[in-house]
Computed example of a mutant assay.
Amino acid sequence: MKRRASEPAPAVPGCAECARLRNEKRAAQEEHDHSRALDCRILLGRHRRDVHGVAR
């Protein structure tokens, strides 16, 4: 059984850093770089929490 990591909420509209992290995650997934994709999900979650005050 394949397990998928939970996805963070979408990028905050108009935020360049959110968009950059989402694009980086997508690119990593396309390249099957699961470690980098996970790093991007974590960084996006932290960014959303710290900068936008949005929990997951």
Rank of each mutant, 00 (worst) to 15 (best):
R56V: 07
E31D: 10
A27V: 11
E30R: 06
A28F: 05
C15W: 00
R36S: 06
R3C: 04
A19M: 12
A27L: 14
R22C: 12
D50T: 06
R56I: 01
R20W: 10
L44D: 07
R56M: 05
D50P: 00
C40M: 15
R22K: 07
R26H: 13
D33Q: 07
E7F: 00
K25S: 06
R46I: 10
L44E: 14
Q29P: 03
R56N: 05
A55E: 14
D33L: 06
A9Q: 04
C40W: 12
H52I: 02
L43F: 11
V54F: 06
G53T: 06
A9W: 00
L43I: 02
V54C: 06
M1A: 13
R3S: 07
A28W: 03
A19R: 11
A16R: 07
G45F: 05
D33N: 13
R49V: 00
M1L: 11
V12R: 13
V51I: 12
R49K: 10
R49I: 01
A37V: 09
A11Q: 08
R49W: 01
V12T: 14
C18A: 10
G14Y: 06
G45Y: 04
P8F: 07
V51H: 04
C40D: 07
Q29Y: 04
D39I: 09
E24T: 08
V54S: 10
A27S: 13
R26D: 14
E17H: 11
K25D: 01
R3H: 03
C40G: 05
E17T: 15
H52L: 03
N23E: 15
E30H: 02
Q29N: 11
H47N: 09
G14L: 04
E24R: 08
L38E: 15
R20A: 15
R49P: 00
Q29H: 05
A28D: 04
A28L: 02
R26P: 00
E30Q: 10
R4N: 10
E30C: 00
D50K: 03
A37L: 09
P13I: 11
R46A: 12
E31G: 03
E17Q: 15
R46L: 15
S6M: 04
E31I: 02
E17R: 13
L38T: 12
A9G: 08
K25N: 06
P10L: 01
A5R: 11
R41Y: 04
K25R: 09
A28S: 12
M1Q: 12
I42Y: 05
R48D: 02
R36A: 09
E31M: 10
